[in-house]
Design a protein around this nucleic acid. Structure first.
Lengths: 167, 167
DNA sequence: ATAAACTTTCAATAATTATTGAAAGTTTAA
DNA sequence: TTAAACTTTCAATAATTATTGAAAGTTTAT
């Protein structure tokens, strides 16, 4: 397999995996491209490589920046903006976990909590609704706790990195 | 909050959370409805409750059965087929984890593995591609291992259930 | 074998989501 | 202040995905 073929395959595969992370194709592909790039890329570079429009690139770069995955890099003497992505995969995982929890899990936990606290009128169906909603509430809560654990490990990672630096 | 309101809220919330699990709205809503139902439901019941067409109901029930989440229940004296869902939330999590791993993670692991084994021609960009693809390969592998761990815990769960039964 | 009761399939259609491109907006250099 | 270089916005359009409904298929009872 040649480099260009491998690169293409990597970008498109990672792009389609995006749905697993809850991010769209273009977003995932931009991230993938930056991920294997050895230097920051401009909007022009990205448009060119991925054959996507300026608008699309702009919007998805912005979203990636909102998520905290991509950052602007200012290159002295250049008018254009350049972009890089978080290169540590573990860190990337943490960022995504945190964002998805905040955006998707939290609202669900709230609703499940509301629903599971309806008045128990003693009928079987009400009992079942309460019981099962509570079970899901626990599960979702749990998933959130797991994500949070992942996130707090960031502290350790950061600490370790700093220790490594000052040693 | 009244029962019917709570029920509706629960079904629609769980339905929209479906995307988080990688299943579509109707599929998630059918599962939610069965989840809080105290008795098996027929296709007719489901169509009626969720206001969806016969075809849609049929296709999504089938998919849920493919996933192993929903099972047909034969009720003596009834011509219609009735359906129930796995009621144990943990078990549900395991089934979904397993299916998603099989359907989505496995193919990605394969591609990442292929890509990361391209010939190292010594250039910086090739090195970066190999390095980063390997990192993602490890991550995906890891995610898969986690899901598998979750799945094997099923054994314990089963054992416990059986012990509980025979005690 | 027939017909009623039910389920599945699938082409057509609707709903949703992603993408484009050009106009409007912003920043920088001179 | 002007204009060139660049980015953002957003209405229009394209692509994708979900849903319908009716015809075809299957099963069961007589």
């Amino acid at each position: 397999m040649k480099y260009s073929e491998a690169k293409f395959k990597f970008i498109s595969t990672w792009g389609s995996l995006g749905s697993l992370w809850g991010i769209n194709k273009a977003m995932a592909q931009i991230q993938a491209l930056l991920f294997i790039s050895t230097k920051p890329l401009s909007m022009e570079d990205i448009m060119e490589e991925l054959k996507i429009s300026r608008g699309n690139t702009s919007m998805n770069l912005r979203q990636l920046m909102d998520w905290g995955i991509v950052t602007k890099e200012l290159i002295p003497g250049e008018r254009k903006e350049f972009f890089t992505t978080e290169k540590d995969v573990q860190e990337l995982t943490r960022i995504i976990a945190k964002e998805r929890s905040r955006r998707e899990l939290q609202p669900v936990i709230k609703v499940l909590n509301d629903v599971s606290s309806i008045k128990d009128d003693g009928t079987e169906k009400t009992k079942e609704l309460i019981k099962q909603t509570k079970a899901l509430h626990d599960l979702t809560q749990n998933a959130d706790a797991m994500l949070n654990k992942l996130i707090t490990q960031k502290q350790n990672w950061l600490t370790k990195s700093i220790i490594k630096l000052i040693k």
